[in-house]
Simulated assay, not measured.
Amino acid sequence: MGFLNLAGLGKVHFHEYGTGQKPVLAFHGYGMTGKQFNVLEQSVLKQYHVYGFDHFFHNESKLDDWTEQQIIAGMPKAMVKAYVEQWFKTYGRQRFSVMGYSIGANLALILVEEYADLIDEVILMAPDGLAVYKGFDIIQNKAWGQLLFKTVTKSKWLAPALLKNLRKVGFIDQSLYDIAYSEMNTPQKRMDVYYTLNLIKLLRPDVVKIASLINQHKIKCRLIFGRQDQLFPKLAAIPFINLLQSPDVHEVDLGHWLVVPALDEYLVNLTP
């Protein structure tokens, strides 16, 4: 593990693990850390050496004196390049792969936009960024949604009440309710959610450009979805998948909580 100092951003913490030789820059889901992919020990970790970055407001990654106003305005998309440029300074300019789960897929996809000529493979699991998720769009970009999000964050009772009502009307299932509740059941956790989702709101991948680059550079692209995932299902990603020449697409019998030992077993049993 170590740190990269990203100019204008802060100090990002990363974890190193895996017995494979091929480097992969990995970005985890909300509420996790860069070690999230260590459960894929029989599949991914035997092929790759993982550099798993902690998102800001997670674990030991810290922004440099950003004001609340700056955080709410969002991190400029161009700043994502700093991850790779600083990694190159430490490990040398070289080919690499990218991997992302859930909101972490946004950063992985943006790196494809910037470094397609150096990327060997893209591995995305229950990925955000391939289509607009209406819930995030409302709380990140609509004035009334932003106000609601801030109000819920500051309240002790609104967050659990809202989550219960969303579950009742079927907007989220029990598994998503459990995940969301566990990440919003204290004032600090609610602020971390608020700051994280605002910080990343400008990190919107250009999926048409990315698909073209994947095809042009013949980048391997593995997409894995949970069959019961109501947050980022395969159906929403079909337009992107249809743009790819040779996608490796999988739908497994899981929900959004996808990076688990059962996925490792599934990947190991795939025909090479």
Rank of each mutant, 00 (worst) to 15 (best):
F57G: 04
V50L: 14
K77I: 03
K89M: 10
V84F: 02
Q70V: 01
Q86V: 12
K89P: 00
W87C: 10
D64Y: 10
H49A: 10
Y48S: 07
E68D: 14
P76A: 05
K81G: 06
H49I: 03
S61I: 04
Q94S: 10
K81Q: 14
V50D: 11
D64L: 05
E60D: 13
K81A: 15
E85N: 13
H49E: 05
V80S: 02
A78H: 11
E60Q: 11
K89E: 14
M79F: 13
Y91R: 10
V80G: 07
D54G: 07
A82L: 14
D54M: 06
G52T: 01
V50S: 09
L63Q: 08
V50F: 15
T67N: 09
Q69V: 12
D65G: 02
I72F: 03
S61Q: 09
K89F: 02
T90Y: 03
N59K: 03
T67Y: 12
S61F: 11
V80A: 09
L63P: 02
H58M: 10
F53N: 00
R93N: 10
L45Q: 14
E68M: 07
W66K: 13
A82I: 00
G74Y: 12
Q69H: 11
I71E: 10
P76D: 12
A73D: 15
D64K: 02
R95N: 13
Q69F: 03
Y48L: 04
D64M: 05
Q94A: 08
K81C: 12
Y83E: 00
R95I: 00
H49D: 00
I72R: 04
L45N: 15
Q86M: 11
Q69E: 15
F57V: 05
L63F: 09
Y83T: 00
Y83H: 09
K77H: 02
G52K: 08
V80P: 06
Y91L: 08
D64E: 14
A73F: 04
Y91K: 14
F53Y: 14
V50M: 13
G74Q: 09
A82S: 15
G74P: 01
D54E: 13
K46F: 09
E85A: 06
S61G: 06
F57P: 05
F56A: 04
